[in-house]
């Protein structure tokens, strides 16, 4: 497979904080192919979340090369448009907006598209139907505060997918869930990966979760130190 198949290409990427005192990424190299499900493991402070922020264009690297979905993120000017079109985030703490209903939360990323309110509502509903809710009609108009942790994370996944992104970046998506609910969410992510052919980059510190991916990268001191391929 040649480089053109890579959806993420990172070479010698460096990022420091606190005027260089903290070296979060220290010459990171990583290549991920389109449609892959990979996981990134490492202890706290190893640089895995910083790497996710760089891929998702939430922050800019100090030096190196990073190209995601064909966009050179070191040179790109409109990172908002890139995030809107190419990236879907799933956070550990779902980060849903408490005063908006379930449907309205899923509609949020679509405000940067040209869709009408009606089209947005329809698309949000389609995504929520993919999330295997047993009681979807009951919760549609409810605020997320009334949902269980697992239900909230499903809504967050629907929100991440609603703009048909090329890549889903999931930062400890099961970290705040009990093991049974966590399993359900991981299964959902795996199913969506297969059905939607979306690239998933999952950050975790739990080996059990990491093993769900096709490839596992171990990060330490801002570098990839090990790559493991699941059979």
């Amino acid at each position: 497979m040649n480089k053109q198949d890579n959806i993420i290409e990172i070479h010698n990427l460096k990022k420091s904080y606190d005027k260089g005192k903290i070296q979060a990424l220290n010459g990171m190299d990583l290549e991920i192919k389109k449609g892959e499900f990979i996981s990134i493991m490492g202890p706290s402070g190893s640089g895995k979340s910083t790497l996710l922020n760089m891929i998702g264009a939430l922050d800019r690297a100090d030096e190196g090369y990073i190209k995601v979905a064909g966009i050179d993120l070191m040179k790109a000017k409109d990172l908002n448009k890139f995030r809107s079109q190419e990236i879907g985030f799933v956070f550990q703490m779902h980060n849903l907006i408490p005063n908006l209903s379930v449907v309205e939360n899923v509609e949020i990323p679509m405000y940067e598209t040209n869709l009408t309110s009606k089209e947005m509502g329809k698309r949000a509903l389609e995504l929520l139907e993919l999330m295997n809710f047993s009681n979807l009609s009951d919760i549609l108009k409810q605020n997320p505060t009334k949902l269980s942790g697992g239900e909230r994370q499903r809504v967050a996944i629907a929100r991440a997918l609603v703009n048909h992104p090329s890549i889903i970046l999931a930062d400890e998506p099961t970290g705040a869930l009990d093991s049974k609910t966590g399993d359900t969410i991981l299964k959902l992510l795996k199913d969506l990966h297969q059905k939607e052919n979306v690239t998933i980059v999952l950050v975790t510190h739990e080996p059990y979760v990491a093993n769900m991916a096709e490839r596992i990268f171990k990060v330490l001191d801002g570098k990839i130190v090990e790559e493991k391929k699941e059979s």
Partner: peptide, 13 residues
């Protein structure tokens, strides 16, 4: 945090 999410999903400033 909510504003951070809005930026993460691509909202312009």
């Amino acid at each position: 945090r909510e504003i951070g999410v809005l930026k993460a999903v691509g909202w312009r400033s």
